[in-house]
Amino acid sequence: MNQQQYPPQQPGWGGPQQPFGQPPFAPPPPKKGGVGKVIGLGCLGIVGLFVLIALVGAVVGGGSGSNDSKNTTKSVGGTKAGDSAPERAKKADKKVVVFKVWGTAPAGALGPLNITYGSDSDNRDGDFKDGKFKATLPLDDDALYFNVTAQLQGSGDIHCSVTVGGKTKKGHAAGDYNICSAQVSAGLLGGWN
């Protein structure tokens, strides 16, 4: 009979002992499949797909800098020769932003009506004379918004508006130190809201 030998039991160490010749700890469990790698490659594939779509869109939608032989009408001052006066006026309006304030606003204890207008990166002060204010700025396509605010100085009734690319937003304020505010914001997909 073949008997396996055990190391001698030491005093004070109760309980079962490991058989002689075996490691004291269980071996680590086997590694699982590469699920993390598959998920990582899947995310990378999705990002790559978006990059590919953007590149194809840029190539197909590009060409703004190319010479198009089909368009032979010469441009004069940003408008094409042969455009009618109303068409030229519409195109000119799309390249500027118009700010207006009108109504009654007597000077109060803090002075005359306080007007501020401009974009997210360009703020200016305006003067209210003879019951109205009007200013224009060139259209900055990188602007996030254009706005006008006018604060009454104790009394009055005023209206305000901002027009960008044919889109107009209006506001109103009456009495006390109320503020008339109007803002046109850039849309996520282009255009003005």
Score class of each variant (00 low, 15 high):
Gly78Thr: 03
Ala81Gly: 03
Asp83Tyr: 06
Tyr117Val: 08
Val97Met: 09
Thr116Cys: 01
Gly78His: 03
Ala107Gly: 10
Lys95Tyr: 04
Val97Ser: 10
Ala109Leu: 14
Asp122Leu: 11
Ile115Thr: 06
Ser84His: 04
Glu87Asn: 09
Gly118Ser: 14
Phe99Asp: 05
Pro106Trp: 06
Lys94Met: 14
Gly111His: 07
Lys100Gln: 13
Asp120Ala: 04
Thr116Trp: 04
Gly108Ala: 05
Asn114Gly: 03
Pro112Phe: 06
Gly103Leu: 00
Lys80Cys: 00
Thr104Pro: 00
Phe99Lys: 06
Lys94Pro: 00
Val96Pro: 01
Pro112Asp: 15
Gly108His: 02
Ser84Lys: 10
Asn123Asp: 08
Leu113Met: 11
Ser121Lys: 15
Thr104Arg: 11
Ala81His: 02
Val101Trp: 02
Asp83Val: 00
Gly78Arg: 04
Ser121Ala: 13
Thr104Val: 12
Lys94Tyr: 12
Pro86Gln: 07
Thr116Phe: 05
Gly111Val: 06
Ala105Thr: 03
Ala92Gly: 07
Lys91Ile: 05
Lys94Thr: 14
Pro86Phe: 01
Asn114Met: 07
Tyr117Cys: 06
Ser121Ile: 10
Gly108Met: 04
Pro106Ala: 07
Leu113His: 07
Val96Asp: 11
Arg88Asp: 02
Asp120Gln: 07
Arg88Gln: 13
Lys90Thr: 11
Pro106Asp: 10
Gly78Leu: 02
Gly118His: 12
Arg124Tyr: 13
Asn114Arg: 13
Asn114Leu: 12
Trp102Ala: 11
Val97Ala: 09
Gly111Thr: 07
Thr116Ala: 12
Gly111Met: 08
Ala109Cys: 01
Gly108Lys: 03
Asp83Trp: 12
Val96Gly: 02
Asn123His: 10
Ser84Glu: 08
Thr104Ser: 14
Gly111Ser: 08
Ala105Lys: 01
Trp102Phe: 07
Val98Ser: 15
Asp122Glu: 14
Leu110Val: 05
Val101His: 02
Trp102Tyr: 09
Asp125Gln: 14
Ala109Thr: 14
Lys94Gly: 14
Thr104His: 08
Lys95Cys: 04
Ala109Pro: 05
Gly82Val: 03
Tyr117Pro: 06
Thr104Leu: 10
Gly82Pro: 03
Ala105Cys: 05
Ala81Lys: 12
Gly111Leu: 08
Lys100Arg: 14
Lys90Gly: 01
Val101Gly: 01
Lys91Ala: 12
Leu113Phe: 08
Ser121Asn: 13
Ala85Glu: 11
Arg124Met: 13
Asp122Pro: 00
Ala81Tyr: 10
Tyr117Leu: 07
Ser84Cys: 04
Ile115Arg: 02
Lys90Arg: 12
Ser84Arg: 02
Ala85Thr: 05
Thr104Asp: 14
